[in-house]
Design a protein around this nucleic acid. Structure first.
Lengths: 164, 164
DNA sequence: GAGCTATAGTTTCCAGTGTCAACTATTACA
DNA sequence: TGTAATAGTTGACACTGGAAACTATAGCTC
């Protein structure tokens, strides 16, 4: 049983590398880095998201998030707008150009995924989607742990125990 | 059908972010960055791997690979050794310390994966593993395309076509 | 074997990136 | 009104990986 989880972890890590910043060959798409692209996606998904929230969602400090938004703004993909309710807060939203480039990147990589999986039958495609959903949901469920006792646990190696 | 692949892509991207350099909170484990860890894994998996081969495997230039190995060597996790057959070639191998830290990291994240999936029954765990294997294998199968016509295709957005 | 070319690796210079700490500006509250 | 808290920005800094130049070895041709 334990070995299964090691295998699963190694597979996830390899897949993640493939779709990560270096697996995609350093550049994500056009003039966007992977980090910028992920921020753009996040901004597109949530209306009037704040700088802080983007930082929290992507695991950046607020100053890091601010600079990522700087770059996206300079490229014309997002806008900053001071909240009418609270003058300290800054709403970030995508421009039409930003939404378009994001959708192009999604299209490009979806076509890549199609190429990966085109030999699978319809049932398996559904199964793959279901499995990924389980993985993503459960990873999001542990996010608090990951940022709390897990990663910042003072360098401790093993926090979770497998009692298999 | 097309929508399925978009969903699958988005799920993969989210999972990859979670297990990528920023999802794991900037630090991978102890004194290793994700890049260093992946290189260490690769070195451990293949005896007498060369600097160039590490670079190719992880999508780095040879100068980049050389520096990553520098860091691993300075930390005492790998050794360089000139090939007896060819004085230009440099064999890289893990030290006992390097192998140990790599295995500790694997253990740590496998426990994390266990925590993610502990509510799944045995059949589903097997299914998850099978699905990930399909994804990793098919991604590796397209690797040449990804580095060839796909990513370096001169900025073209869509190279693969979905004819669904 | 001298000389040219190819190959493996290293090093130098450089640009990009994210963090920390200090700062501005606004809000909340006593 | 004054103090603390909050959101965001900025500047200095360290780290990282790439491009190009460089060293050193190997292979090949004459």
């Amino acid at each position: 049983m334990e070995k299964d989880f090691i295998k699963i972890y190694n597979l996830i890590q390899e897949l993640s590398w493939h779709f990560g910043a270096h697996g995609i060959n350093g550049e994500c798409c056009g003039d966007l880095s992977l980090v910028e692209y992920m921020a753009l996606k996040k901004i597109e998904d949530s209306e009037n998201i704040t700088v802080q929230e983007i930082g929290n969602a992507l695991n950046f400090t607020k100053s890091g998030a601010s600079k990522i938004i700087d770059r996206l703004e300079n490229k014309g993909y997002v806008t900053r707008e001071i909240s009418p309710e609270n003058g300290r807060v800054c709403f970030v939203n995508t421009t039409a150009k930003g939404a378009e480039i994001a959708s192009e990147i999604v299209k490009k990589y979806s076509a890549y995924v199609y190429e990966m999986l085109k030999e699978q039958d319809k049932a398996m495609v559904g199964n793959i989607e279901a499995v990924l959903k389980i993985l993503v949901d459960s990873a999001n469920g542990l996010e608090n742990n990951l940022n709390g006792k897990f990663t910042q646990g003072g360098g401790k190696m093993t926090v979770f125990e497998m009692n298999s």
